[in-house]
């Protein structure tokens, strides 16, 4: 039971990193990334490929980060001249492109995927996941409460306003993408070493959808909200397995039922609490503090 709890916490921490990354993009900047699974998958596959080549894990981590940043810039190229609605389509397409490539390229393991050396000790895995989450949290926090974050929020509210104030929106969106995609890729590297294998089926649109559910449920623009959302979604996901075995539900019905449940959560949140369970805080200036 303790092992199971440790595993749950580890997974929640990894998905929190993914959520925090999406929060920088959407919660702060308003970028609708429907391919959030792409940098995650790139990180995981980089870890796997480096391990296959006999390289130590830091090499895989470095490769994952570099590739994710390079791909983010590539995906940004067509997006920079388009409005943000197209951003969603481009990122969605890019994510699928990657998954289908991994599925069909023998060197990437095809449908079977690749094996990755696992953490020997689950406690170590938990420690690494919590450490990465802490780094992601601190970075997000620093960005959100800084002049940079303030301008990202201006961009989120009104891109034309940012340009009117003499700032180039594309330059800021690029910086945000680089940071957020590197963060998600780091999560992917860790995920690969926790689970012990990577395969295309782990990086589908569904995974992106789950991160979005966590963000919308928790509260876009609020770090604590993101972690609460990630925890709620993962715990719901895990506990549904127990419920299913208890009432004897077939696995495929369970998987689809879970997705339907997440969809319902999204609809209810949008209808009744669009600011999330833990809403973004108003940044109040305290005149006394000076």
């Amino acid at each position: 039971m303790l092992d199971f709890a440790i595993y749950c916490l580890t997974i929640i921490a990894v998905w929190s990193v993914l959520g925090l990354s999406l929060n920088i993009q959407f919660g702060l900047t308003g970028l609708v990334n429907f391919g959030q699974v792409l940098p995650f998958g790139l990180g995981a596959y980089a870890a796997a490929l480096a391990a296959q080549a006999g390289l130590p894990w830091p090499a895989g981590a470095a490769l994952g980060l570099v590739v994710a940043v390079a791909v983010s810039l590539l995906v940004l190229l067509p997006a920079r001249r388009l409005s943000q609605d197209y951003w969603a389509l481009i990122t969605l397409g890019a994510g699928e492109l990657f998954r289908l490539t991994a599925l069909n390229a023998p060197s990437l393991g095809g449908a079977d995927g690749l094996t990755v050396p696992r953490f020997a000790d689950p406690h170590l895995a938990l420690g690494a996941a919590l450490a990465l989450m802490a780094v992601a949290w601190l970075m997000s926090h620093r960005i959100a409460h800084s002049p940079f974050g303030r301008l990202l929020k201006v961009l989120r509210e009104d891109e034309v306003l940012a340009a009117t104030l003499g700032r180039n929106p594309v330059a800021y969106q690029r910086t945000v993408s680089i940071i957020a995609w590197a963060m998600a890729a780091a999560g992917g590297v860790l995920y690969a070493h926790i689970v012990g294998y990577v395969s295309p089926s782990s990086f589908t649109v569904t995974e992106t959808f789950i991160v979005w559910t966590a963000l919308i449920l928790g509260g876009p623009g609020n770090n604590l909200g993101v972690v609460v959302g990630a925890a709620a979604v993962q715990l719901l996901s895990v506990s549904s397995r127990f419920v299913a075995s208890w009432i004897d539900l077939p696995a495929d019905v369970l998987a689809n039922g879970r997705l339907a449940l997440f969809g319902l959560v999204l609809v209810l949140m949008f209808l009744f609490r669009p600011q999330g369970l833990v809403p973004e805080k108003k940044e109040v200036r305290d005149a006394q503090r000076r």
């Binding site: 303030r150 929020k153 989120r156 509210e157 009104d158 306003l161 973004e280 940044e283």
Partner: peptide, 8 residues
């Protein structure tokens, strides 16, 4: 007027 409405 163009403003960031959800900022103070």
């Amino acid at each position: 007027p163009r403003l960031a409405h959800r900022l103070t």
